[in-house]
Design a protein around this nucleic acid. Sequence first.
DNA 1: TTGAAAGCGCTAACAA
DNA 2: TTGTTAGCGCTTTCAA
Lengths: 377, 377
Amino acid sequence: MKFILSSIFLQSFAKFLYSIILGVITGWKMVNKKRNVITLKDVAIKVGVDKSTVSRALNPGTQDLLSPEVVARIRDVATRMGYRKNQLARSLRTQRTMTVGIVLPDITNTLFAPIVRGAESILEPLGYTSMIVNTDDDSERRNYLIGVLLERGVDGIIDAAPQISTTQFKSIEEHGVPLVTAIRKTDRTSIPAVINDDEEGIRLLIRYLHVRGHRKLAHIAGPETLSTGHLRLNAFRQQTSLIGLDIPENAIAYAMRFDEDEGSRCALDLLVSGLDFTAIVCANDRLALGAIKALHQSGIQCPEDISVTGFNDLPFLNLIPPGLTTIRIQQFDVGRLSAELLTRMMTNQEAAIPSTSILPVELVERGSVSKPRTNSF
Amino acid sequence: MKFILSSIFLQSFAKFLYSIILGVITGWKMVNKKRNVITLKDVAIKVGVDKSTVSRALNPGTQDLLSPEVVARIRDVATRMGYRKNQLARSLRTQRTMTVGIVLPDITNTLFAPIVRGAESILEPLGYTSMIVNTDDDSERRNYLIGVLLERGVDGIIDAAPQISTTQFKSIEEHGVPLVTAIRKTDRTSIPAVINDDEEGIRLLIRYLHVRGHRKLAHIAGPETLSTGHLRLNAFRQQTSLIGLDIPENAIAYAMRFDEDEGSRCALDLLVSGLDFTAIVCANDRLALGAIKALHQSGIQCPEDISVTGFNDLPFLNLIPPGLTTIRIQQFDVGRLSAELLTRMMTNQEAAIPSTSILPVELVERGSVSKPRTNSF
DNA sequence: TTGAAAGCGCTAACAA
DNA sequence: TTGTTAGCGCTTTCAA
C-alpha cells in the first residue's frame, strides 16, 4: 500500500513540482491523539445514566419515552460536550445508511449536475446523503461503481446512466436495493423511470421545421444504446413519415457519443453523402454544436444554408450564435421526481409507483432555423 | 415522518400530475424479504472455517497468513455465493470509512465539477469514495453540511467553498479530520491550500491591456470574503500602481456574487459613475459575461468601445462572441493535487505538506480586447 | 421511566 | 496456519 501511494504520488509530484511556487512547510497538526470523539457512553457517564437512555433522549422518535427533565439534561450535556452521532454505528444497527447512490455518466457534463441538485432538494431535508459516481458511460466502470455503492449499503439508487438493454441491474436487484432511472430509461418496465418527453420534443421540432417550409430533413442520431438516442431517432422516423416526408436511409447519421466531435463527424458524413437536405435535426445540443461547426468549416452557413436544431437547451446556449433552436427539458425536476419516487420505495410506501413518468418539454426558438434557401413550397 | 413524506410528496405530486402521461402501475418488487445479503459468517459456515479466516482470506493484506489452498477455496466460495464486503461494518471496526467529503459552492457551476473529477482521479483508485455537498456559499448550510460529513466519519475533507476568514473549521479540527482547501484559500496557513495563481493571472491581463494601449482601467471585483475575489483585487491594485496607472476609487465596482447579474450591475455602476475608462478587468468570466451584456444594452460595443477580460476560462467561452480574453486555470489539477495532499495527510505520511500550492495560469487571447478607441499613446 | 444485554458485520489481538 | 474472543458505537428488545 505504501508503495502504491508513493509511486502514484511521486509521479504526480514530479509533474507538479514546477508549479508549487510557495511551498512553506505547514504546521498542520496530525491530530492523531485518538480523535477526541465523544460517544454516547461518554455522555451517559457524565450524566449518570445508561447509554441507551442517552440514545433515547437524543432521538426524536424515542425521546418521549423519557421524562422531560432527563431529556433536557442529557441534551444539554450532549451539546456542551460536543457530541455528534456516529451515523456509521447507527447504520450498522438499523440497517439503513440514509444514503442514496447517484449514478451519472459524467458530473462535468452540464446536463447532469442539475439532476443531482433536484434529487438532493428532496433527499437532503429527509436526512439522506448522496454518493455520486461517474461511469463515463463505460459499462465496466459502471459495474464496479455500482458494486462500491452496494458495499457501502446505499438505501437506494438513482441511475442517470443506464443503457437501454442491460443485465447490469442484477447485482442491485440481488441486494434488494430500490432503483429509479432518471433522464434515460431501460427496456425493463419493472424499473421506474423518470424521463423527458423525447418523442414530443422531436415532434415539436419537425413540425416547426415543416411549417417553415423544410421538406428535406436529415437526422444526427445519438447512441442507440441509450434511450434518449433511440427514442429520438424513432420519433424522427415516425413523425417525418406521418407528415409524408421521404427520409432516405442515408439522411440519418449515427453518432457514437453525444459530443461535439461526433456531431461534426456526422454532419460531414451527411455532406459527403451527396444527399440534398435543408435542415438537420440533432439528437442533442452538443451534436448540434459540432454539426454547425463542421458546416461552417465547409463554408456552409447556419441557418442561411442549412437549419440545425438541438435538444436539451444547455446553459449558455442562448449566447452562442446563431442561437440554437432546441428543446428545453426539466433536468432539475427529473432529479426531483426521481428522488420522490425513490423515497417512497425506500420507505415501503405501498402506493403505486409509475413505471414511467414523462416530463413535458418545450420548444425554444432561436436563430438556427430559417426558411430553406430554395423554398420548395 | 409519514406525514412529512406524504405532504411533501402530495405537493409535488399535484405539480407533476399533469406531466405523468404514462403511469402504468409498476410491478416493481419491494424486495423486503430480509435483503438476502451474504455475510462473512455465511461464507465461513459454507467453507467450514471461522469467519475470521474468511476475513483474512478476502483481505489482500492478510491473505498470505493463510495457506494458499484455503485462500483459494474461500475466495471461490465467496464469489460463488455473491459475497460483498460490508464496508459499513468494516469501517466501524477499523475506524476508517475510506470516504472523503468534498465541499463545493455548487456542483452545477461548471467551474467546480472538474475539481471533483480531478480529486476522484486520485481517490477512486485508492478505494476512497467521495461525498459531495453544495453549500451555495451559505455559511449556515455549510456548517450543517460539514456536520453531516463529520457524522458520517469522512477520513478527510476537500473544501472548495471556504471563506477567507472563518471559524467554521473548528468542528473539523475538533474531530481531527484532515482538511485541504481547493481553488480558494483561507487566512489560516495551518490549512493546506491548493489554488491557481490569481495574482499572476491579473498581472498577465493588465500587462496585456497595457501593451495594447489601455491606460484607464476599471475593475469589477469579486466578493471580498472569498480569496479569489480578494487576491485578484489586490493584484489589480498592485499591478496598476506598479506600471504607473492611476486608478480612482470609483474605478472599482464590488460584486456581491460571482454571477452574471452582478457583473451587469457593476458594469452599469461604472458607466453611470461618469468615469472615463477603456477596459474592464473582471474578477471572473461570469462577471465579464454580465458586464458585456450590460454594455451592449447600453449601446456600447465590446471590444470596439470598451475592452473586457475575464478569469477562469469556462467551457464554451470560445463559442460566445466576441470571445472573452481570459485566464485559463487548471481546475482538474487543483482537484487532483488537493486529493494527493489529502491522501498523504490521511495516511499520516510525515512528509512535508506545502501550506500553499499555487498552480500556474495562462492567458487566453480572444476577441474581447482591442486597442482603446481614443488611443492615448 | 430507565437499565441491562444482545447484536448489527467486521477486524485484530491473542491463543493454540 | 487457524480459531477464539472482544469490541467498534449504536439501537432495541426485554426486564425491572
